[in-house]
Nucleic acid binder design. Structure first.
Length: 657
RNA sequence: GCCCAGAUAGCUCAGUCGGUAGAGCAUUUCACUCGUAAUGAAAAGGUCGAGGGUUCGAUUCCCUCUCUGGGCUCCA
């Protein structure tokens, strides 16, 4: 029999009989590999395990526990979901069902406008497990478009995808489903069930099984708000029960960190329904933390050459007509108020008012860069369905600064802005950063091309000088200028977009801003927008989740609580509290009316950095029993010694810049 | 705005096949005075999200609305 030679990723070669498949290859290498195999990469293209391998092919086996392998598992599980739904709901239309981060989804339209309820998930789950148990093969076929349209007659969403692909008007969603070639690829599991798909898939449904259907949701067909609302089912799928359980456990952990839950438990803030959606009130403990954040920010800005300004919450409509907000973002603004002889709006941004400050008198180049800073309260009418705790809120505070500079100053200013932003983010305990550089959308921009090129180059060079890893998002800039967005990674690996540095070629133009240059002529300044926290509220929410409520000592609402062992030690406990407060620390006392163990538990539940227990020995020796958050109890620590330690800790936490 | 699920004491939740409700924690009081994550007892606490309908009677069934949660869409 003729043989073919296959090259493996490690450079080694193997001879196999002609007609051998990737499965044969995997089996020839080892039983474990054959078991874990879900697909293959043949000459750089993902392919099914069961395809005959071409001669002299480069082949890599995709195993279930790799990212690519999980993607295949999830996509295949989505097909099983569709098969189960079609079986249980005769007449159901199926549309698309891709693998996504950690799982998959599939969108359906049910007959008669029926919708899924959570209760349906159990019966769908059971039907899926039967399909998996039946060990159905995923059989690939390639058809001309005309034939595919016949196969999917009565399935309007599938036909639409086929037509878009065959007429060349497909987008990524479509090609993700069926590839972009001349023929349409499909996978058939049974005579009854066939689905469009580019593949690859696992060879048979028995490779699947470690999945869980998570939730039902509405989703627009092709993401179009005006299009039909389909019924989406989300699921997660993994290569083993252990991995599935770990994933579910991670979800539980994230849920425990939910800032809305922690905000209630720690009595930080609330969203009273009487107040209205997306509006928060800050309780004393939350307000302490927020004030510390803001004070620190002010201190850094004062040292960084910023000038503080204040501007009102309301403005005459004319201002937002000049700025363009009413033209571009009216839907996102609170409705107008008619008063006196004009129309007023809540401000959605601070920049127009900062422009008015710049414009209030003639400016000289000697004043530039002029850096204006404000913790400005803005109000945006976010749609009801989008509100999410502090992360998406209707009234919030931007730590907003606008920098007006000469064009030749911009590059240096950007570089120092980036240093400043990163330094402050580090002080709040973030260490992992990535950035996005958004460039010009050629179809929608103002300003001249040279200015855009210079601005983009300045942003890029700042990123490179700082050594911040970044991705370029082509065409993602706002119409008025390119920008850098900075993402931080939190303690459990989630990314949050926080800071932004943006060029603006538009606003200075609209407001007719000018400065007098060395040539005594008038010039237009460059304007830079810079938000560091972004929104103080959202940043607080991110910190709360990052620290799981256990704020570092420097910003903890209560830094230490003193517990007298018995009433006899109350006097000494009061002295300790007074001493620590005199040193500037936030300390309180929990008297002996509850048992000691109970009081310790309460203080721990409140995530107090230090619980200080004082009894007979401590009164005698002016010492403390120190019970630190997350550490070991230490008896007989001298009061002076503890004070010094606490000062040192706070200083060290803020020195990490 | 659209789809799904909710709303019962401050919090977490149980319950009422239609006859106006209960637990744990928290709160208050009393007793206990204790050395590192829950002492015991008692009291108080609810227009069962709002409005309308069906009914002799609705917290429970139906409708509408509000709000909350998960998605979609949107996010200067």
């Amino acid at each position: 029999m003729a043989e073919i030679t296959i090259s493996l990723p490690d450079g080694s070669q193997r001879s196999l009989p002609e007609g051998a498949t990737a499965t044969t290859l995997a089996e020839s290498i080892g039983r474990g590999l054959a078991k874990a195999a879900v697909a293959a990469v043949v000459n750089g293209e993902e392919a099914d395990l069961g395809n005959p391998l071409p001669a002299d092919a480069q082949v890599a086996i995709i195993t279930a526990e790799s990212d690519a392998g999980r993607h295949v598992l999830r996509h295949s599980t989505a097909h099983v979901l569709a098969q189960a739904v079609i079986g249980l709901f005769p007449g159901a239309k199926y549309s698309i069902g891709p693998a996504i981060n950690d799982g998959f989804y599939y969108d359906f339209e049910l007959p008669g406008g029926r919708t899924f309820t959570e209760g349906d998930l159990a019966s769908i789950d059971a039907a899926m497990r039967l399909i998996i148990k039946a060990d159905q093969p995923f059989v690939r076929a390639e058809l001309p478009a005309a034939e595919a349209l016949l196969v999917f007659a009565g399935q309007p969403y599938k036909c639409e995808i086929i037509e878009r692909v065959s007429t060349g008007s497909a987008d990524n969603d479509d090609t993700g489903e069926i590839g972009s070639g001349e023929t349409i690829s499909v996978y058939r599991n049974t005579p009854e069930f066939v689905d469009l798909c580019r593949g690859p898939h696992v060879p048979s449904t028995s490779k699947l099984g470690h999945f869980k259907l998570m939730k039902v949701a509405g989703a627009y067909w092709r993401g179009n708000e005006k299009g039909p609302m389909l019924q989406r089912i989300y699921g997660t799928a993994w290569e083993s029960k252990t991995s599935l359980d770990e994933h579910l456990h991670r979800l539980e952990e994230a849920e425990k960190r939910d800032h809305r839950k922690l905000a209630v438990e720690l009595d930080l803030l609330s969203f009273p329904t009487e107040l209205g959606g997306g509006l928060a009130v800050w309780h004393p403990k939350g307000a302490i933390v927020r004030k510390l954040m803001e004070d620190y920010s002010r201190e850094r800005h004062a040292n960084g050459g910023y000038q503080f300004v204040f501007t009102p919450h309301l403005s005459n409509a004319a201002l937002f007509e000049t700025s363009g907000h009413l033209g571009f973002y009216k839907d996102g603004m609170y409705p107008p108020m008619e008063m006196d002889n004009g129309t007023y709006y809540m401000k959605p941004m601070n920049c127009p008012m900062h422009c008015l400050i710049f414009k209030s008198r003639q400016r000289s180049y000697r004043e530039l860069p002029l850096r204006l800073f404000e913790l400005g309260n803005v109000y945006r009418y976010e749609r009801a369905g989008t509100l999410h705790g502090l992360m998406r809120i209707r009234g919030f505070t931007q730590d907003d600064s606008h920098i007006f500079c000469m064009p030749e100053q911009a590059a240096e200013e950007i570089a120092s802005l980036l240093d400043f932003v990163m330094s402050v983010l580090r002080a709040f305990g973030f260490n992992e950063f990535t950035a996005n550089l958004s460039t010009k959308d050629p179809n929608k921009y103002v300003g001249d091309d040279d200015a855009w090129d210079d601005a983009t180059a300045a942003l890029r060079s700042a990123l490179e000088k700082y050594g911040l890893p970044y991705k370029i998002k082509e065409g993602d800039a706002a119409f008025y200028g390119p920008k850098i967005d900075i993402d931080v990674q939190d303690a459990i690996g989630r990314k949050w977009q926080l800071s932004t540095i943006q060029y603006d070629f538009n606003m200075a133009e609209r407001f007719g801003l000018e400065y007098v240059g060395t040539d005594s002529l008038r010039h237009r300044p460059i304007m830079l927008h810079r938000a560091l926290f972004g929104s103080v509220e959202r940043f607080f929410g991110v910190l709360l989740e990052h620290y799981a409520g256990a704020f570092p000592t420097w910003m903890a609402p209560l830094q230490a609580r003193v517990l007298p062992v018995a009433t006899a030690h109350q006097g000494y406990a009061e002295q300790v509290v007074a001493r620590l407060q005199a040193e500037g620390f936030r300390v309180d006392l929990d008297d002996a009316s509850d048992q000691l163990g109970k009081r310790i538990r309460t203080a721990k539940m409140e995530k107090t950095p230090y619980v200080l227990v004082v009894g007979d020995d401590d009164v005698a020796g002016t010492t403390l029993g120190v019970n630190p958050r997350g550490g070991e109890v230490e008896r007989g620590v001298g009061l002076d010694q503890f004070v010094a330690r606490l000062h040192a800790e706070v200083e060290e936490q803020l020195a990490n810049v």
